[in-house]
Design a protein around this nucleic acid. Sequence first.
DNA 1: CCAAAAGTGTTGGCTGTACACCCATGT
DNA 2: ACATGGGTGTACAGCCAACACTTTTGG
Lengths: 226, 226
Amino acid sequence: MTTSPSPAARPRAGSLARRPDVAVLVVILTVDGARVKVLLVRRSAEPFKDSWSLPGGLLMDSESLDEAAARKLDDETGVTDVFLEQLYTFSDLDGRGSVAVAYFALVDSQQAHLARRREWPPAWFGVDELPPLAFANETVIDYALRRLRAKLDYSNVAYSLLPPDFTLSQLQHVYEAILGRPLDKRNFRKRILSLAIIEPTGGLASEGRHRPARLYRFRERRPVVF
Amino acid sequence: MTTSPSPAARPRAGSLARRPDVAVLVVILTVDGARVKVLLVRRSAEPFKDSWSLPGGLLMDSESLDEAAARKLDDETGVTDVFLEQLYTFSDLDGRGSVAVAYFALVDSQQAHLARRREWPPAWFGVDELPPLAFANETVIDYALRRLRAKLDYSNVAYSLLPPDFTLSQLQHVYEAILGRPLDKRNFRKRILSLAIIEPTGGLASEGRHRPARLYRFRERRPVVF
DNA sequence: CCAAAAGTGTTGGCTGTACACCCATGT
DNA sequence: ACATGGGTGTACAGCCAACACTTTTGG
C-alpha cells in the first residue's frame, strides 16, 4: 500500500524542521514445531555493535517503504511472496531521533533459506527465549505478536506459515503455537471448514505418517478477512 | 507510544540512502448530529497550494512523532486530552519521496475551538461531502474511518467524541453516525450497559428536552479494549 | 392534547465450547 | 500387538437480533 502523504507545511518561526534517518525494520516470524520464532541478525555497526537485533536498514534511493521492507525480507530469507504488512512507526529511540517503520512478515520456515553470511548469519529465536536485543526491539516483537494473534482470529494469514499443501493437523499446530494454548480438534475443524478459506486438494499426506491425512490448500494465498 | 527503532544499517555499495522529509498528518474526526466530519485546512504552499488537505507538518527538532501529532491537533483545535492514535505510514506520494506518518484523533465538536486564522481557517467537512483534496488524502481518511468503525466494536473510543456527561441516546447517535446505520435502542442499551464501560452520574439532562434523561459518564477517559 | 424522546423484556436462532471413541497405518 | 495420529457428532450455554408499548415533559 503506497499512498500519498500530505502537507509540506513550512517549518514555523522558532522551530527547526528535522530531516531524520528513516529506517525500515522487519519482524520475520515463523512457526517451527510448537514455537513461534523470530529472525534476528547481529548488528555490524555502533551503537549496539555485535548485539542481536531485528533486520532492517535505511530507505534507499527512490524506493517506497513497502519495497524497502520486501527487499530486507528477501535479503535475509530469500522469500518473496509472503504476508508482509506494516506494523507501526517508532520514533526517537536510537537517541539520534531517527524514525523506524516496522513491518511484520510471516514465512514458512521450510521455505526460507537464510542468508549465509560468513560472519554473523541470521538465526531463528523462540519468542520466549530472546537474547538481549538492541534498542527496544522487544517492544516491536511484542507488537507483532499481538497483531498476529489478533489477525489469526479474523483472517487467513496462516497461509503464509505453511507449505501450499498441508493437513488440518498441521494447521491446528500453527494456531496452537501462535495462540499459546491447545485447541479442540473437532471444534477447530468445524470452524475452519465452515469459513471455507481452505479446500481439499484430493491428495493425501503419507510421509512417515501413521494414518494418511487429507491435504488441503488455502483458496487464496493472499490476505483475506473473514 | 514512543518506543525505539532499530538498526542503523549502513547503506550498501551501489545504492544511495535517502534522507526523506518526514511529515505528520492528522485525521481529526468528530460527530456532528448524524454526520461524521473531518477537519481540513487550506494548503499555503505548493504543490496543491490553496486546495484542501489534512492538517499536518514536518517533524520539528527533537520531538517524537506522537508529540508532533499532538502539537498539530492542538494547533488546529485547541484540544489536548483526546483519543489520538497512529494510523499508518505512507510513502512516496508527494512525488518527492517524502514519508508521511498519519494519525487519527477523535474530538467532541463542542469542545474544539478551531484555529481562527485570518485567511484559510480550518473547517469541518462531512466525510461524504469532501471537496477535492491534495495528494491522496481521501485514502488516508478512508483508512481512519475503517479503523474507527472497527474500534467502536471492541473499545470505548467514543468517550472522546462526547462531553463528559451524556445520555444514552446521545451515545447511540454517535454510534449510528459512525456505523452509518440505525441501531435498536433496547439492544444498544443492553449491550453498552453490560460492558460496564459507562456509569450513571446521578444527574439528569433537561436542557430543552422533552423528557429528562439520565446522564452517564465513561468510567475511563482513556482507550480501553473490551 | 399532541409531539417528541426516554425507558423497558422476551423470544428464537446462531455460534462457540465441552466432551470421547473408533480407525488406519507403521513399527 | 501396540502406539500414533486421523477423523467424526451432539448437547448446552451465551450472545445477538427482532420486535411494541408506556411514560414524561414541553409547547
